[in-house]
Nucleic acid binder design. Structure first.
Lengths: 230, 230
DNA sequence: TTGACAAACCTGGTATGCCAGATACAATAA
DNA sequence: TTATTGTATCTGGCATACCAGGTTTGTCAA
């Protein structure tokens, strides 16, 4: 056997378009657009200079971002970051509820006991009485996010994962803004535990229902308390 | 008042890119890709000649179609029409079930009695004993499709409509291929009537459950009987 | 000072040319 | 004949020039 060099295959897949897409999506989703009162405008030529590529890959990335609903281009006016309305946010949360509910159903049918057990570990450290989630909102918020992502992943349905990927960006932002209100963190962890218990018991109908209701509660909360959304 | 010509405003919104996108999507989705055994390859330059525009709007349209999962471009190889696997089809049907189930829930909460009553009229002519759906599969298939579209629309949730738009293209094709099997048409109309009755009674939980189960049944049927899918 | 109006510029849309990788095929050597 | 290699050709990725419509700005008359 001849000695061979260990070479990694060159990443021939990531074109400038793909890189620009990820860079722009990252940039757009990392700013809290609901905190800025004025609308944000993007400039193709400026971005192409900043990223060091021509306008073509920038435009193709913008095409993708527009289809995903993150930006809106007005011909000869400019490209603008989209601010979701309260109605749209609620609709997205409702869809999220339906998809996560389906994920819970699929988990009871197909996931292994070990996988389900792994969900509990996400909340290790938040269950003792002396360590209430209110005191560590950021940490709990992260665990919260990981829980919902894990549910989607364990479902084994890639289509759910794909469809929730962009919803998640918006729902996550809303969750983070509302987690501190109305004792939601403590109530949230109770809901999560009940969902996990239903999954462990393979109670398909209950798990499905609890997962749906948990997220529909968020929708109702946003309806009542998020007047800062237009 | 001076006489004026009746002129329609020029459709300044539909760019070549948008027109190319719709033309290509129409062309791709109208061919039954599962009937052709060989993979279908698209050529940017050929298409730009056929549509009479340059490659740029073609490329941007392709970018959109690729993100929607209808085509896949391999650099310096070509652009290929995507053939969904059986696994992917089932996943899409499951997602459809979750979204239509949510739509049924929302209808019981927000739709008017008149809107719900309109669902029955879609099946006028298929309910008499002498006019069984089996004898008119094409007509029934159309009514079937309109029923599911109406459910989505009546939900009032635009996000559901957007997310099911592309799923529908695939699910529709599968429904049409399976409607003639296994007495599915007759059983389907029974399911639909039960769903309508639950909606009329504003039975949220039942309508939600029936709508979900009706489509999950399709998923189970595909799992068992659609071996022609890869 | 203020209003209208025109010129300069800015912006996204489109066409086009070039590039490098991939392929097909012919030429060549074993 | 068969394996190999070189070359012509084809393909999508990218850069760039130009266009038309919109905006801004500045000038000038009232």
């Amino acid at each position: 056997m001849t000695p061979r060099l260990e070479v990694k295959p060159i990443d021939t897949q990531s074109s400038f378009r793909t890189q620009a897409y990820h860079a722009l999506k990252q940039a757009i989703t990392s700013v809290n657009i609901y905190a800025h009162p004025h609308e944000i405008r993007l400039d193709e030529r400026q971005l192409s200079q900043d990223l060091g590529v021509s306008r073509t890959p920038i435009r193709e990335a913008m095409t993708l971002l527009e289809q995903e609903g993150f930006v809106k281009t007005l011909p000869r006016r400019g490209i603008f970051v989209v601010r979701k309305t309260k109605r749209e946010i609620i609709e997205m949360i409702e869809v999220w509820a339906a998809l996560e509910s389906l994920a819970a159903r699929l988990i009871t049918l197909h996931a292994s006991d070990a996988e389900i057990a792994g969900l509990r570990h996400l909340f290790d450290g938040f269950q003792e009485n002396g360590h209430s989630p209110e005191g560590h909102l950021d940490e709990y918020s992260d665990a919260n996010i990981r829980f919902h992502q894990a549910i989607i992943k364990l479902s084994g349905n890639q289509c759910i994962a794909d469809m929730t990927e962009n919803l998640f960006i918006h729902v996550r932002a809303i969750r983070q803004m509302t987690i501190g209100q109305d004792n939601r963190a403590a109530r949230s962890i109770v809901d999560h535990m009940k969902i996990i218990e239903a999954l462990e018991r393979r109670d398909t109908e209950l798990a499905e229902k609890l997962a749906r209701q948990h997220t529909l509660d968020l929708a109702a909360h946003v309806e009542k308390h998020c007047e800062f959304l237009s």
